[in-house]
Simulated scan of single mutants.
Amino acid sequence: MADPLEDYYVNEILPLLEKDRALQAVTLLRHLQSEHPLDRNMSIAVLNVSEN
Rank of each mutant, 00 (worst) to 15 (best):
D3R: 10
N48E: 09
Y8G: 05
L47C: 08
D39F: 00
A2I: 05
L29K: 05
I13E: 02
E12I: 13
L5A: 13
L17I: 14
P4I: 03
N48M: 09
N41G: 00
P15K: 13
D7V: 02
L14A: 13
L5Y: 03
P37C: 05
N11H: 14
L29D: 00
Y9W: 13
E6T: 11
D7Y: 05
Q33S: 08
V49K: 14
I13L: 12
L38A: 11
N48Q: 08
P15D: 10
P37W: 02
H36L: 08
S43R: 00
L28R: 04
V46F: 02
A25I: 07
Y9I: 06
Q24S: 03
E12N: 14
M1G: 01
A2W: 06
A22W: 10
I44Y: 06
M1A: 12
K19Q: 14
P4V: 00
L5G: 04
L5Q: 06
L5S: 09
V10S: 13
L29E: 02
A2K: 12
K19C: 09
S50V: 14
S50Y: 02
Y9D: 07
A22M: 06
L29N: 01
D3K: 05
N41Q: 04
T27G: 04
A22Y: 08
E18V: 08
E6S: 09
S34P: 03
L5E: 08
N41L: 02
P15N: 11
D39A: 09
E51K: 07
L16M: 12
N48L: 03
E51H: 12
L14P: 05
R21K: 15
M42T: 01
M42L: 13
D3P: 00
R21M: 06
V10C: 14
A22G: 11
D3M: 06
L14S: 14
D20V: 12
E6Q: 14
S50I: 10
N52M: 03
T27D: 09
R30I: 03
D39Q: 02
E35V: 15
R21I: 07
L17E: 11
E12H: 15
V49D: 00
A45Y: 00
S50R: 01
P4A: 01
V10W: 09
L16C: 12
D7C: 09
N52E: 09
L47P: 00
D20R: 14
D7A: 12
V46W: 07
I13F: 10
N11K: 15
S43G: 04
D3A: 07
A25W: 00
L32D: 00
P15Y: 08
P4T: 01
R30A: 11
L23W: 06
D20S: 11
M1N: 03
Y8V: 02
N11A: 15
L17P: 09
M1E: 07
L23E: 10
I13A: 11
V10G: 13
E51T: 13
V49F: 11
T27P: 00
P37Q: 03
E6K: 11
D39V: 04
L29V: 08
S34Y: 10
T27E: 13
E51V: 14
D7F: 09
S50N: 05
T27L: 06
V46G: 01
R40D: 04
L23H: 12
A2G: 07
E12S: 14
D3Q: 02
E35G: 10
L16I: 12
E18D: 15
E6V: 06
V26E: 11
V49T: 15
V26D: 10
V49M: 04
L38I: 06
T27C: 02
N41S: 11
K19A: 15
E6D: 15
